[in-house]
Measured scan of single mutants.
Amino acid sequence: LTVEVTLDGRRIELHGLSEEAHEILRHALERNADDKEIKKILEELRK
């Protein structure tokens, strides 16, 4: 799955996400998580 997010003013596409990762990010974006929170989530998903 692919998600497009804006971090530090740049639009980035995240490819190859699992369903779980996609859901976690989608929920964070829906509640307008800040860049710091999104980065933390991405860091966790990379593990």
Rank of each mutant, 00 (worst) to 15 (best):
L1M: 13
L1K: 11
L1C: 05
L1G: 08
L1Y: 10
L1V: 11
V3E: 03
V3W: 04
V3L: 15
V3M: 15
E4Y: 02
E4Q: 02
E4A: 02
E4G: 01
E4F: 03
E4D: 06
V5K: 01
V5E: 03
V5R: 01
V5Q: 02
V5A: 02
V5P: 03
T6N: 11
T6K: 06
T6H: 13
L7G: 03
L7W: 00
L7M: 08
D8R: 02
G9Q: 04
R10V: 15
R10I: 15
R10D: 10
R11M: 10
R11F: 09
R11P: 08
R11G: 05
R11S: 08
I12V: 13
I12C: 10
I12R: 03
I12F: 05
E13N: 06
E13G: 02
E13R: 08
E13D: 09
E13I: 15
L14N: 01
L14E: 02
L14R: 01
L14Q: 02
L14M: 06
L14S: 02
H15L: 07
H15P: 05
H15A: 09
H15D: 09
G16C: 07
G16M: 05
G16P: 03
L17P: 00
L17R: 00
L17E: 01
L17W: 04
S18N: 07
S18V: 02
S18A: 04
S18T: 12
S18Q: 04
S18L: 04
S18F: 03
E19H: 11
E19I: 13
E19F: 13
E19V: 13
E19S: 12
E19N: 12
E20G: 09
E20T: 11
E20V: 10
E20F: 08
E20D: 11
E20P: 04
E20N: 09
E20W: 09
A21Y: 09
A21S: 08
A21E: 15
A21D: 13
A21G: 08
A21H: 10
A21I: 09
H22A: 15
H22C: 10
H22K: 12
E23M: 10
E23K: 11
E23V: 05
E23P: 02
E23H: 12
E23F: 03
E23C: 07
I24H: 11
L25D: 02
L25W: 00
L25N: 01
R26N: 13
R26F: 05
R26I: 15
R26Q: 14
R26K: 11
R26C: 05
H27A: 15
H27K: 15
H27L: 13
A28K: 00
A28V: 05
A28E: 03
A28D: 01
A28T: 02
L29E: 04
L29H: 03
L29C: 05
L29V: 09
L29K: 04
E30K: 04
E30R: 03
E30C: 08
R31A: 12
R31Y: 06
R31F: 07
R31T: 12
R31M: 13
R31I: 12
R31Q: 11
N32F: 13
N32D: 09
N32S: 12
A33N: 04
A33L: 08
A33M: 07
D34R: 06
D34Y: 04
D34I: 06
D34F: 05
D34P: 13
D34H: 07
D34Q: 08
D35Y: 10
D35R: 04
D35A: 11
D35L: 07
D35T: 10
D35E: 15
D35M: 08
K36A: 14
K36L: 14
K36I: 13
K36G: 13
E37D: 07
E37W: 06
E37F: 07
E37I: 09
E37V: 09
E37A: 08
E37T: 09
I38A: 01
I38K: 01
I38P: 00
I38D: 00
I38G: 00
K39W: 12
K39Q: 09
K39E: 09
K39Y: 12
K40Q: 12
K40Y: 07
K40H: 11
K40L: 13
K40W: 07
K40P: 01
I41T: 02
I41Y: 02
I41N: 00
I41L: 11
I41A: 01
L42G: 00
L42T: 02
L42P: 00
L42M: 08
L42N: 00
L42W: 05
L42I: 15
E43N: 11
E43S: 10
E43W: 02
E43C: 10
E43I: 10
E43G: 10
E43M: 10
E44Q: 14
E44H: 11
E44W: 10
E44Y: 08
E44P: 01
L45A: 05
L45Y: 05
L45T: 03
L45S: 03
L45F: 10
L45E: 01
R46W: 15
R46S: 13
R46I: 15
R46K: 12
R46H: 13
K47I: 15
K47A: 13
K47D: 10
K47T: 13
K47P: 11
K47W: 11
K47L: 15
